[in-house]
């Protein structure tokens, strides 16, 4: 077996990419729990980075802080050199829908809207007209293998289909960074791999950065590198 697999191509050595998302000394506590105890992260343009770590290590909190969902108690987050942790809620909301995309484990689609409308949602929120927004949204369906599902409701789709709709929604605005929190957590291996395959293929051409929180090594294997969070700190930074 090893003989076949020995032919595996070594992934192309990437030149150190230009940093796009830089966090320094992030700290965040919830009540008595210290979720982040000083984290430094630099993520480059076009990188796919896996955030790994045991349950409760703070990896989701790190993602929420990087994505401007949560505000860190201390430390800074910069997107393309601009501080985003100090922005107001409205500014961060705008940033989330223009520069970021999100794929979460579940519950992220609006159950009342069809798949197409869900994908068009960030555009609608940005003031794009409904027909334009739905036309742009529809473009994503073939490449994610969900053609024909445009007018289904989330409740009428399988988990894998829902996640692919979520990927389409995350990508529809042409974001700088896509954040994914356990995107395959509720899927079986095949569906999970399809989602990761589509996500990584979709971002490869557009230099979109992906930060994916996962506890699955197979999912992390789609990333260019991994960051391990343990007890709110970065653990095991291994020189590449």
């Amino acid at each position: 077996m090893t003989t076949y697999l020995a032919a595996a191509p070594t992934p192309v050595e990437r030149a150190a990419p230009a940093p796009i998302l830089v966090a320094t000394d992030l700290k965040k506590r919830f009540g008595r729990t210290e979720a982040l105890r000083g984290i430094d992260v630099t993520i480059g343009r076009g990188e796919i980075v896996a955030v790994m770590g045991p349950s409760g290590s703070g990896k989701s909190t790190l993602l929420h802080c990087l994505a401007g969902i949560l505000r860190p108690d201390a430390g800074t987050v910069e997107l393309e050199g601009r501080r985003i942790d100090t922005l107001g809620e409205t500014e961060r909301s705008k940033l989330r829908r223009s520069s970021f995309g999100f794929v979460f484990q579940f519950g992220q689609l609006v159950p009342e809207l069809t798949a197409l409308e869900n994908v068009a949602l960030p555009l609608l929120l940005d003031g794009v007209s409904r027909s334009d927004a739905e036309a742009r949204a529809a473009d994503w369906f073939p490449s994610l293998g969900i053609e024909g599902l445009e007018h289904r409701r989330p409740g009428d789709m399988s988990g894998g289909q829902s996640q692919r709709v979520a990927v389409a929604r995350a990508l529809v605005t042409g974001p700088t960074v896509v954040f994914a929190d356990e995107p395959t957590g509720s899927l079986d291996s095949l569906a999970g791999e399809q989602v990761m395959e589509l996500l990584s293929a979709a971002v490869a051409s557009s230099e979109t950065t992906v930060v994916v929180v996962t506890h699955e090594a197979r999912v992390a294997a789609y990333a260019h590198r991994e960051i391990v969070v343990r007890d709110g700190r970065i653990s095991g930074v291994v020189a590449a």
């Binding site: 595996a8 790994m52 260019h224 991994e226």
Partner: peptide, 19 residues
């Protein structure tokens, strides 16, 4: 040890994924 093993494992898994 776990971290360095993980790093090595993931590197290999990346190769396999690409393969």
């Amino acid at each position: 040890i776990v971290d360095s093993e993980r790093h090595a494992h993931l590197a290999r898994m990346r190769e396999l994924t690409a393969l």
